[in-house]
Amino acid sequence: MDLKLKPFDFSQAVARAGLAPDGTPLAKARPVEKADFQSAMTQALKQVSDSQLESSRLQRELQLDNPSVSLEQTMVAMQKSQIGFQAALSVRSRLVQAYTDVMNMQV
């Protein structure tokens, strides 16, 4: 049995890995953005606000007898906004409790 191996071209493998022939990256990698609590909380509160606005809009459209808005769709939107608001209140209560716990610590 005669086995002949083809010469391996490392330049293709390096190019597939996204590296230059000297081993350096071809493109600078973007720094990973840290997710901070403030932006996460702001985004969550914005989503809750948007959900409440959408619920109010659907309620208004249902009251005006818009045929494209159903009662079921409106009720689901109301429940989603209520659950989101309750979750935001829960997070706020825990934050206030944590703040008071830290403030009451003896140094």
Rank of each mutant, 00 (worst) to 15 (best):
D50V: 03
V48P: 01
R94H: 15
E33C: 01
D9T: 05
S51N: 07
Q82G: 11
A44C: 06
A13E: 10
Q106R: 13
P67D: 08
A35C: 00
V91I: 15
P31R: 05
P21N: 06
V107Y: 07
L3M: 00
L26V: 07
E54H: 12
M1P: 03
D22T: 03
F10R: 04
N66M: 12
L64A: 15
V102Q: 10
M78P: 07
A77Y: 04
G18M: 01
E54F: 11
A29K: 08
Q86H: 13
K80F: 07
L19W: 01
A13K: 07
L19D: 00
L5F: 00
D50E: 11
Q12D: 10
S68E: 14
L5I: 00
S55W: 07
Q97V: 08
A15E: 08
L53D: 08
S81K: 09
K80D: 13
Y99G: 02
L45T: 03
Q106C: 07
A40D: 03
K80P: 02
L19P: 01
D50R: 07
Q82M: 14
V96K: 14
Q47I: 06
F10C: 01
A15T: 04
Q63S: 14
Q63M: 14
L71Q: 13
E54A: 14
V48E: 03
D9I: 06
A98I: 06
E72G: 12
A77K: 10
D2S: 11
Q73P: 07
A20Y: 02
P67N: 06
D36K: 02
R94K: 15
D2Y: 03
A29H: 04
L19M: 02
D65A: 15
L19F: 05
Q12F: 06
L5R: 00
Q82A: 15
K34Q: 05
M103A: 09
K6E: 05
L53I: 13
D50N: 10
M1T: 05
Q79D: 15
N66I: 05
V14F: 06
T74I: 08
V107C: 03
V102S: 09
K28C: 00
Q47N: 10
A88Y: 08
K4A: 01
A88F: 10
Q38D: 07
G18C: 02
A40P: 00
V76I: 13
F8W: 09
Q38L: 08
A29L: 11
S39C: 00
R30I: 02
V96A: 12
R57F: 10
A20N: 10
T100H: 14
Q47F: 05
P7S: 00
P25I: 01
K4G: 00
D101T: 13
L89R: 15
K46S: 05
E54L: 13
D36T: 06
K6V: 02
Q82R: 15
S49E: 11
